[in-house]
């Protein structure tokens, strides 16, 4: 099958994300990349756990002082939902329904922005209410690096989705563009999984003390 070939819903293959050799390579390569990313975040988690609540004086805020459940829970729900909407988008991609795919991707992007906005609000809150900054303590450095790295991944994921949606808005789906969408959604799921760990390790365990 040629990458540039035009398709109809009838001729569209079952796994458009890996129907050409290039797509297969991209698919596998991206999974491997996510393997490396996993180690990357594992390293950040390990460092965070080592430096959690390591502050130079008694006047510094600790994890149990900082985190508030409602906000973090809301952020978690938004990101989990965005993962679900990206699943819908991929469902429509597999059904060769470009419009609906774009629609669900659009919703995903909106949810992503909502998450990012809340995260910025959250960081701002810590900085101004608690003087908990990147440079105030080792705890601060570790916290903002771990959660910030995740936030940067979200921002990159959003930029990626938007680029794909704009770039391909005219030409729709073929075996050249389908893997691109698919891989971007994989990335989005990965970000979501990382957040689940952040939610557990940083926030839930942080509130317990």
């Amino acid at each position: 099958m040629q990458a540039e070939e035009k398709f109809t819903p009838e001729t569209w293959p079952a796994s458009p994300e890996k129907s050409t050799l290039e797509a297969k390579n991209k698919f596998l390569g991206f999974w491997l990349f996510l393997g490396g990313e996993t180690v990357l975040f594992a390293t950040l988690f390990a460092t965070y756990l080592a430096l959690k609540d390591k502050v130079p004086g008694t006047d510094h805020a600790l994890a149990k002082d900082l985190f508030e459940m409602p906000l973090v829970f809301l952020m978690t729900m938004i990101l989990l939902t965005s993962s679900l909407t990206s699943v819908y988008a991929m469902y429509h991609m597999k059904n060769f329904d470009f419009k609906k795919m774009q629609l669900w991707l659009g919703i995903t992007v909106l949810l992503g922005f909502a998450f990012l906005g809340l995260e910025i609000y959250e960081f701002n809150h810590y900085v101004h209410e608690f003087h908990h900054t990147f440079t105030s303590s080792a705890f601060g450095s570790a916290f903002y690096t771990l959660v910030g790295f995740h936030g940067a991944h979200v921002a990159f994921g959003l930029a990626w989705f938007i680029t794909l949606m704009v770039r391909n808005s005219k030409r729709g789906l073929d075996l050249y563009t389908a893997p691109k969408f698919y891989v971007a959604s994989l990335y989005w799921h990965f970000i979501d999984v990382v957040w689940v760990f952040i939610f557990t390790v940083v926030y839930l365990m942080g509130m317990v003390g």
Partner: peptide
């Protein structure tokens, strides 16, 4: 940042 500065908890 203070990852390795022990006076700041690193």
């Amino acid at each position: 940042a203070n990852f390795f500065d022990h006076t700041m908890g690193g």
